[in-house]
């Protein structure tokens, strides 16, 4: 095989050709390269992995949810039996269902931890306000997934928790009765309710979550990741070599300076 520098090897050409083809027609290769090789502050720490960990938990929910949908029957007559079948008979069905059930709790916990991290770092401040709003909407959507998914096994726990949950929604002023009626799909919880919850749980809300995650990540990449605020080398920190008394005055009132330790 030729080893001349200027002439790429056949192997190299075989890799390059489809990538160049794709890049020329979509710009996707450049996009992925930009995503992977973008700079982040040098002092990011482990707390800042909570966002991607939340994404991982959501992807686990997506994959296990798709598999469950292949075996689950969303009708009052068959739902319970299909859950028992998945849990007790389908090969590794217990694992997929268990991962979906407990993955939901992990997903919710990670969302709260991630939100706590953003709060501690003050990372919701200018110019990242919109990303905070998107994050809170994701939290609400995640809780809605928990609420709609809880009914699907159609056992006593599921049924009675949903009866009360829907009735509580109904106590809201103006929208409440309408919302309860919409969720039930009639006067009582039954086939209509189960179909609605199933549709919301596996189509409507996950679709909204995917869209919100897309926007959330777009803003993370566009605006960048924050440095820990206590870091000595925090990116964007006020410059020590360009003292601005006005700036000092904004963050550190002179009157309080005497008794304060850094």
């Amino acid at each position: 095989m030729s080893t001349r520098r200027r002439q790429p090897s056949r192997m190299q050409q075989a890799v390059d050709f489809p990538l160049d083809w794709l890049e020329e027609r979509s710009g996707l290769v450049g996009g992925v390269k930009y995503f992977l090789f973008r700079k982040v502050p040098a002092d990011t720490n482990w707390m800042q992995t909570l966002g991607s960990a939340t994404l991982t938990a959501f992807l686990v929910q997506t994959v296990t949810g798709v598999i469950l949908a292949m075996y689950y029957q969303p009708t009052p007559n068959d739902a319970y039996a299909s859950i028992v079948n998945i849990t007790d008979h389908v090969t590794l069905g217990w694992l997929v269902r268990g991962m979906h059930k407990w993955g939901a709790s992990v997903f919710i916990i990670l969302m709260f931890l991630h939100m706590g991290r953003v709060f501690l770092f003050g990372a919701y401040k200018y110019p990242r306000e919109l990303n905070w709003v998107l994050g809170v909407l994701l939290l609400v959507m995640g809780m809605a997934e928990g609420f709609t998914g809880y009914l699907l096994p159609w056992d006593q726990t599921a049924y009675w928790a949903s009866v009360v949950g829907i009735n509580l929604n109904g106590t809201a002023p103006f929208l409440g009765p309408w919302l309860a009626q919409f969720l039930r799909g009639g006067q009582d919880i039954g086939a209509e309710t189960l179909a609605r919850f199933y549709s919301l749980h596996m189509l409507v809300i996950p679709g909204a979550i995917f869209a919100l995650i897309g926007l959330h990540l777009y803003l993370v990449i566009r605006l960048g990741v924050t440095s820990p605020p206590w870091s000595k080398e925090a990116a964007g920190a006020d410059r020590a070599d360009e003292p601005s008394q006005l700036r000092e005055g904004l963050t550190r009132p002179a009157a309080r300076g005497a008794g304060e330790s850094e």
Binding site: F37, T49, A53, W94
Partner: peptide, 27 residues
């Protein structure tokens, strides 16, 4: 700054593996 890949991505990957392990263990 540092490049996201491989520095920050390494930590993200380790944390994601921990998350999946915890979920499997709970199941």
């Amino acid at each position: 700054g540092k490049s996201f890949y491989p520095f920050a991505m390494f930590e993200d990957t380790v944390m994601s593996l921990v998350v999946v392990t915890v979920i499997v263990a709970l199941a």
